[in-house]
Write a protein that binds this DNA or RNA. Structure first.
Length: 851
DNA sequence: CGGCGTACG
DNA sequence: CGTA
DNA sequence: GCCG
């Protein structure tokens, strides 16, 4: 909603609006704004909630890498009721808690060793690290700690393995393609932006195999390897095949001529029938055909890209030659056995006396020559037929490839523009260049078809580098610096999942204990008491039981890669797979020891990491990357759709739809019809706001916004208490939106919805909001928590900010705080666990349904 | 092999 | 279907 | 895609 219409609806003239703007701007923080007469409020002194002011003392926020989320009691000041809730904490508090715990203040727990593989090693481990050392604290049986966090009365004593806890919202910066400050932030996604691709001029490396591996190979393996590599990569292999074909035809022609001349010389033209003549007739067109095929192979459009009818005609032509040469073969054989010069021996079953069987060939040697030539003709014709049939098999191969693509769940695109990977039988770089755009070559891996088979055999997305028939961009090639098993599979097709082999190379290595955050104890350790009950890292299925750092000190790159895969699953509407990746990423992020040296068997023991994830993790630490992630990064369609979803109201479905309708830039989206999905923030406005909204908000500004809004709230409402929730509350140094959870005096008669509406009216009148994305409707009194989604901006010179204001009744304040602190995974696991415990369903804030 | 968070616009 |  |  524009400022003008807002002002008009508020009934103020432009002049008074300007005045009010000026007078407010000076009082954003600190002194309360002048009471607005028509609301008759009673402003209260401002005070910040402890969460932000205590856990985030002065200092550069970016240096923080502490644990961000734990279950902790939170006392409702007004009622004195303990409302345990998760709060963020810093490395300082983490160490403080650990100290307390070592002093025996922590709750009792029983250690259960991991089933196998990880034996406690009598090491000189710093006892201070003991509880985050997997060797000593892999699994726990603890008392459930959650019941008391949400006001459920019953405390079920529960045993459960606990572990993995994560967070989910954090720096997904790597996925934000368009930074508003950059030029052309709305430009379509480009491969080289993502991958830093250079000109594809490098030679395709033939080997991915280390010298040691080669040295270990037997001669036969070496031969096989080189043969495969040759057939797969050499540009002249098709030419060679055709050359062999032409040579065969030439020989056939020559033999036909020789035979014919020889017989003609003795007046016995019909001695071996007409097969030599036919050979002479068939050969020239066949050679022309072969040359035509060479031309097709090296100069024309690839057959795979032909129109269907052209392919059919091409096939028919092949068929014609198959027929001709089959006929010639049959005839030549018949002529041989029924020849009047009797080539067969008298003891052969094919021998029989023919009427007038005789020969004018004067010498037995001449007769033998003729017979041998006829045999040669038969053989050559036979081979020719086989060669033609092989061509047919190639045609069949195309169908096979298409089927295989379907089997693998991939999509076969008729138009190569739609594809993100190009498969080809072509080998000649020139020719590949001739039939792909530079765009294609830069953006899309061009692979031999064998890659498909490798993927099918291995059951995973196999490293595509060894199958490239055209130089890949740097991003694909750089990881080759690391030696890998995938590469030792090289150009050949792996027949077993690669991780089965990889196991051999990763003997069990001692685990190195590592601690989160900085090792230097912080200077001041306040709030010791508050962290008394913080749990150590535990191997649990539920995120809610585990402390999780905002960023993993050990695995952040891996976490980011898994998150990328998660995004891909989201865009491809695979919700459950997406969740698995979210869980896995979160699990990895929370793990306080290095996963890099661990073999698959141990990785799998981490809850949330299964066979596939373990394989991917091994792949990541072996190759330096995950093959599928590279594919995704190079996938223009995915990246484009990802950018689309950065608009408010555009999710996976709409992004896909728009992409299929031809949209390639964010601008394209706005020109689409029927796009206004979100109530007051359609694609057009969302796009206009994106440069602002994609910029992250520093904590200081979040506090300023909260202070300002609450000041306005207090002009008409008493006993306001508030907290900045969301990722800020989890310790994030910056975020993309501000979640403000507020509550008020329990004796107040107005409903949260009414208050919210009043507040929004005030905000509009100020004006400090530009858009109202949605506001709760005025409903019955039973609505205890309501939400307003706004776009906040004080003056035209500042950035637009997404602001969610949550208004909760006092009874729901703690629950609302918990609900709005997140992360998403935390919320889901909280509910999952609660349901498992048999807690009755309550609503999101503790009343009707479950959390 | 079933289930995977939940409410609301 | 999108968002929190 | 993982877990029970």
């Amino acid at each position: 909603m524009s400022a003008e219409s807002t002002a008009a609806q508020a009934g103020s003239t432009p002049d008074t609006r300007a005045t009010s703007l000026r007078s407010r701007s000076g009082s954003v923080s600190g002194d309360a704004p002048a009471p607005m007469t028509f609301y008759g409020g009673n402003p209260l002194p401002l005070h910040l909630t402890p969460i932000l002011s205590k856990t985030r003392p002065a200092g550069p926020a970016s240096e923080e890498s502490g644990i961000s989320q734990m279950l902790q009691p939170f006392t409702d000041v007004s009622t004195g009721v303990a409302v345990p809730i998760c709060v963020p904490y810093t490395p300082a508090q983490w160490f403080a808690w650990r100290d307390l715990r070592l002093q025996g203040a922590h709750r009792a727990r029983k250690l259960v060793p991991l089933p196998n593989g990880i034996e406690p090693e009598p090491s000189n481990i710093d006892p201070y690290d003991a509880d985050i050392n997997v060797e000593q604290a892999p699994l726990f049986i603890t008392r459930g700690a959650l019941h008391d966090t949400v006001g459920w009365e019953a405390q079920a004593e529960r045993t459960g393995r606990q572990n993995v806890h994560p967070e989910k919202e954090e720096a997904q910066k790597g996925l934000t393609m368009h930074a508003a400050t950059e030029e052309q932030w709305n430009a379509p996604w480009m491969f080289d932006e993502t991958l830093g691709a250079g000109p594809a001029s490098a030679k395709v490396p033939l080997e991915g195999v280390s010298e040691e591996k080669v040295a270990q190979m037997t001669d036969w393996q070496l031969f096989q390897y080189h043969t495969r590599a040759f057939l797969l990569r050499n540009a002249y292999v098709p030419l060679l095949c055709r050359a062999v074909n032409v040579m065969l035809l030439t020989s056939t022609l020559a033999i036909g001529i020789v035979l014919r001349r020889k017989l003609r010389a003795v007046g016995e033209e019909a001695a071996v029938g007409v097969s030599p003549l036919l050979a002479i007739i068939f050969s020239p067109p066949s050679m022309a055909h072969a040359i035509l095929q060479i031309w097709f192979e090296y100069f024309s459009l690839p057959i795979g890209l032909w129109k269907l009818s052209s392919k059919l005609w091409y096939t028919v032509l092949e068929l014609v030659f198959v027929c001709l040469w089959s006929a010639e073969l049959a005839l030549a054989m018949d002529n041989y056995f029924t020849s009047t010069i009797v080539c067969t021996a008298s003891n052969s079953p094919f021998y029989f006396i023919r009427e007038g069987a005789r020969t004018r060939l004067e010498h037995q040697g001449d007769k033998d020559t003729v017979c041998n030539l006829q045999v040669a003709l038969i053989c050559l014709t036979f081979v020719s037929v086989i060669v033609y049939l092989m061509v047919f098999m190639r045609v069949d191969d195309y169908e096979r490839v298409v089927n295989r693509i379907r089997q693998l769940g991939a999509v076969h695109c008729e138009a190569k523009e739609d594809a993100n990977i190009l498969l080809t039988a072509l080998r000649a770089p020139r020719r590949i260049e001739a039939h792909t755009s530079e765009d294609d070559r830069l953006h899309k891996p061009i692979l031999a078809v064998a890659w498909l088979d490798a993927c099918a055999d291995a059951g995973i997305n196999v490293d595509l580098r060894p199958f490239a028939v055209y130089p890949l961009s740097d991003a694909y090639s750089h990881a080759q610096k690391r030696e890998s098993f995938l590469q030792s599979a090289g150009a050949c097709v792996p027949t077993t999942p690669w991780f089965k082999r990889a196991r051999l190379a990763f003997p069990q290595t001692p685990l190195t204990p590592v601690v989160h955050g900085t090792l230097d104890p912080p200077d001041e350790l306040d709030d010791r008491e508050a962290w008394r009950h913080a749990p150590p890292w535990t191997n649990t299925e539920y995120a809610i039981f585990r402390p999780t750092p905002l960023q993993s000190a050990l695995h952040q790159p891996l976490v980011d890669t898994l998150q990328l895969l998660r995004q891909h699953r989201r865009l491809t509407n695979d919700a459950h797979s997406e969740m698995a990746y979210m869980r896995a990423a979160a699990a990895v992020k929370a793990v306080p020891f290095a996963l890099e040296p661990m073999p698959v068997e141990q990785l799998v023991q981490v809850k949330g990491i299964g066979a596939k994830m373990a394989g991917l993790i091994r792949q990541f630490y072996t190759l330096g990357t995950i093959a599928e992630a590279d594919t995704i990064r190079a996938d223009a369609a995915i990246q484009t759709m990802l950018a689309f979803t950065s608009l408010y109201g555009i999710g996976p479905k709409l992004a896909e739809k728009a992409y299929n309708e031809g949209c390639r830039t964010l601008q394209d989206l706005t020109s689409r019809k029927k796009t206004a999905l979100a109530a007051h923030l359609g694609p057009r406005e969302s796009l206009a706001l994106l440069p602002d909204l994609s910029q992250s908000i520093p904590r200081e500004e979040a506090e300023a916004i909260a202070t300002h809004v609450v000041a306005l709230l207090r002009t008409f409402l008493s006993h306001v208490q508030y907290t900045i929730a969301g990722s800020f509350r989890r310790g994030a140094p910056q975020s993309n939106d501000v979640d403000l959870v507020a509550t008020y005096d329990a004796s107040e008669l107005q409903t949260p919805a009414q208050i919210l509406h009043t507040l929004v009216d005030v905000l509009r009148a100020v004006p400090c909001i530009t858009h109202i994305v949605s506001v709760a409707r005025r409903k019955g009194e039973s609505d205890n928590v309501h939400v307003a989604q706004l776009v906040y901006r004080t003056k035209p010179t500042t950035l637009h900010r997404r602001l969610d204001i949550v208004m909760a009744r006092r009874m729901q304040y703690g629950a609302a705080l918990l609900g709005w602190t997140g992360s998403v995974l935390f919320e889901r696991d909280l509910r999952r666990w609660a349901r498992l415990q048999g807690f009755p369903p309550r609503d999101s804030y503790g009343w009707r349904t479950m959390f």
